[in-house]
Amino acid sequence: MIELQGVWRTYPVGEGVVHALRDVSLSITPGEHVALIGPSGSGKSTLLHILGCLDRPSQGRYCFEGRDVVALPEAERSLLRRTRIGFVFQFFHLLPRLTAQGNVELPMLFSGVPRKERKARAAQALASVGLLPRAAHRPDQLSGGERQRVAIARAVVMNPAVVLADEPTGNLDRASAQEVMGVLEAMNRQGLTLVVVTHDPLLAARARRVVHLADGRPSDAPGGEA
């Protein structure tokens, strides 16, 4: 489903260039649970942004569901993000003025889903993360773990093919982290492709496949039973 071939990402810094990604080739099949692990500055966030069509490779090919998306116009890429890709962030990025329900409805609001259907689908997504009773609460009335679960509900409400999670538990205590990972893994078991960026080896170990990144270069290693 995801095919990276010889992807480079370079940033000009002063006179020289910084290579955030060097010749990354990666293939992810549907239903996989992949952890991208590496120290900070290793390029894992850059890789995630490229996978999520937020960033474009400086060089190389990226095929998403069989389509080369590098050269696609921005409108097409935002359509992909809207319909095929879900994001989960370290800092949740919930809108504080909206309720949990409102936050989950947000992607549908900008996709033109009718109000009635929005309500129903948001409620369904909230139920799938076990937060339906908290639907009317604002983010500041929720715990960290609950906020991240709302963010997960938001990520999956459009029925994406893949969820990209950037340090999803980086801001949570251990118990909440367990909860959040439990939710994500349950969805993965139902067929959702899951890519988790982390620097936490324990978290990475839960994935079936771990990709180590160091200085912009990946090295695949089997995960799960490690």
């Binding site: 937020l54 409108a75 993000r81 809207r82 962030f89 990025h93 992607p107 900008f110």
Partner: peptide, 17 residues
């Protein structure tokens, strides 16, 4: 900024933003 960034990440089309 964060809200706008989020809207973009969620795939909100630029004309709608």
């Amino acid at each position: 900024r964060a809200e706008i960034g989020l809207l973009k990440a969620l795939g909100a089309p630029a004309p709608r933003i």
